[in-house]
Structures are given as structure tokens and as C-alpha cells.
Amino acid sequence: MPAKKKSAKKTSAAKNTSEHRRLWLMYPPRLIQTPIIWELGGKFELITNVRQASVNDEIGIVCLELSGKREDIKSAIKWLEKKGVSVEPVEINVLES
């Protein structure tokens, strides 16, 4: 049993470690006027840092660094995808043919 407790502690510590993730967010036109990053900052305990952005009538592209707990970053990515934002790592095509 003590061993179990120890491993649970370890997992919880890993979840609480602060991480940085570099992402490309791509917005469809219907979301371009929505303050997504502001909403994200309010919903999750994460630091957002925009490094590049380009917006036109057809697409919004933002290069964003997210810093915070791993679990919060994962939840934020899920929330963004649910909203209709495409989320790619900054490397984009890691998975090639």
C-alpha cells in the first residue's frame, strides 16, 4: 500500500509541474471576432504569449505559447478544439508519410 501512495504522489507532482507548449491556432471565419485567447485566460490558469498572428477575412492564425500545469494545457487544447479552433504543435507536420 505505501508504494501505491508514493506512486500516486509522484503522478500528482508530475501533473502540477509547469510546462510550456508552443502551438499554432487556426480559426475559421466565424470565430475571428471572438476573443478566444482572452476567454482561454479566464477559463484556465495558464499564461498566454502570442508570438505571431495573421488575420484576414478567411482565416485567423495565431502562434501561441501556453505555460502552466500540464493538465490545464491539455484541457485548454480540448476546449479550443471544441470551439472549432484547429490546434497544431509549432512543428506542424510531425507525422509525415
Binding site: 507548449r21 497544431e88 504543435p89 510531425v94 507525422l95
Partner: peptide
């Protein structure tokens, strides 16, 4: 997308 992001990580 999930595979892609995990591999980047």
C-alpha cells in the same frame, strides 16, 4: 492531431 501533438511533445 493527437498523434501529431504527442510526437512533438
Amino acid at each position: 492531431d493527437e498523434v501529431n501533438r504527442l510526437c512533438a511533445e
